[in-house]
Amino acid sequence: MTTFDEREKGFETAFARDQDMAFRITARRNRLVGTWAAGLMKLTPAETDAYAKAVVQADFEEAGDEDVIRKLLGDLVSANVDIDEARVRVALDQQSIEARRQLLELK
């Protein structure tokens, strides 16, 4: 194997590892923000767990965060929580930071 091949393999490995970490951070973030929203909706612990899982599933509808934001905002408004899209986006950003912190602590 040449040096070039070794470097290419190293870059491919690093890319795959970075993509895996990004996926894990997003999934954890969605679970955390689902738990946050469930708290605002005053759900029971069992309902909270189910809701957090539903938020994680919602992220598979389309690329990006819009599907998650749409679900959270729709559910919160339906539950008569006084909230706007900006606050949901802030919560998403905050939970993304927390998710990254949690996963880095696990390593």
Score class of each variant (00 low, 15 high):
Asp49Cys: 15
Tyr51Leu: 02
Leu40Gln: 10
Lys42His: 13
Ala38Pro: 01
Ala37Gln: 04
Leu40Ile: 08
Pro45Ile: 09
Ala37Ile: 03
Phe23Asp: 07
Ala38Cys: 05
Ala52His: 06
Gly39His: 03
Lys53Gln: 13
Ala50Asn: 15
Glu47Gln: 15
Thr26Leu: 11
Asn30Glu: 09
Lys42Asn: 12
Ala52Asn: 06
Ala54Lys: 14
Ala54Thr: 13
Thr48Cys: 13
Asn30Trp: 08
Leu43Gln: 08
Ala22Met: 12
Ala27Pro: 08
Leu43Ile: 11
Leu40Lys: 09
Thr35Ser: 08
Met41Asn: 05
Ala37Val: 04
Gly34Gln: 02
Ala22Cys: 10
Ala50Pro: 15
Arg29Trp: 00
Thr44Phe: 11
Lys42Trp: 10
Met41Gln: 06
Arg31Gly: 02
Trp36Thr: 00
Asp49Ile: 15
Thr26Trp: 07
Ala22Arg: 12
Arg28Cys: 07
Val33Pro: 03
Lys42Arg: 14
Ala46Gln: 13
Arg28Gly: 05
Arg24Ala: 08
Ala37Pro: 05
Thr48Arg: 12
Leu43Trp: 09
Arg24Trp: 06
Thr26Pro: 04
Ile25Trp: 03
Pro45Leu: 09
Leu32Arg: 02
Thr26Asn: 09
Arg28Trp: 04
Ala46Val: 14
Gly39Ile: 00
Ala46His: 13
Ala38Glu: 00
Gly39Arg: 03
Glu47Lys: 15
Ala52Leu: 10
Phe23Val: 07
Ala38Phe: 00
Arg31Asn: 04
Leu40Ala: 10
Ala22Val: 12
Arg24Asn: 08
Lys53Trp: 13
Met41Ser: 05
Lys53Asn: 13
Gly34Arg: 01
Thr44Ser: 12
Ala52Tyr: 06
Ala54Gly: 12
Asp49Gly: 15
Ala27Tyr: 09
Arg31Trp: 02
Thr26Phe: 08
Pro45Gly: 09
Lys53Thr: 14
Leu43Phe: 12
Ile25Val: 06
Arg24Cys: 06
Asp49Gln: 15
Trp36Met: 01
Val33Glu: 02
Glu47Trp: 15
Ile25Thr: 03
Arg24Met: 08
Ala27Gly: 12
Ala52Val: 10
Arg31Ser: 03
Ala22Ser: 12
Asn30Cys: 11
Phe23Leu: 08
Lys42Gly: 08
Val33Ser: 03
Ala54Val: 13
Phe23Lys: 07
Met41Trp: 05
Tyr51Phe: 07
Phe23Cys: 07
Thr48Gly: 12
Asp49Pro: 15
Ala38Lys: 01
Gly34Tyr: 00
Thr44Gly: 10
Ala50Trp: 14
Ala22Ile: 12
Ala46Lys: 13
Asp49Arg: 14
Ala52Lys: 06
Tyr51Ile: 01
Ile25Gly: 02
Arg24Gly: 05
Ala54Pro: 11
Arg28Leu: 08
Thr44Lys: 10
Lys42Glu: 09
Leu32Glu: 02
Tyr51Val: 00
Asp49Phe: 15
Ala54Asp: 13
Ala22Glu: 10
Thr44Leu: 11
Lys53Ile: 14
Ala27Lys: 10
Ala22Leu: 12
Thr26Asp: 09
Ile25Cys: 01
Met41Ile: 04
Thr26His: 08
Trp36Asp: 00
Arg29Cys: 00
Phe23Glu: 07
Thr48Tyr: 11
Thr35Lys: 08
Ala54Ser: 14
Asp49Leu: 15
Val33Gly: 03
Asn30Gly: 09
Lys42Pro: 05
Gly34Val: 03
Val33Tyr: 02
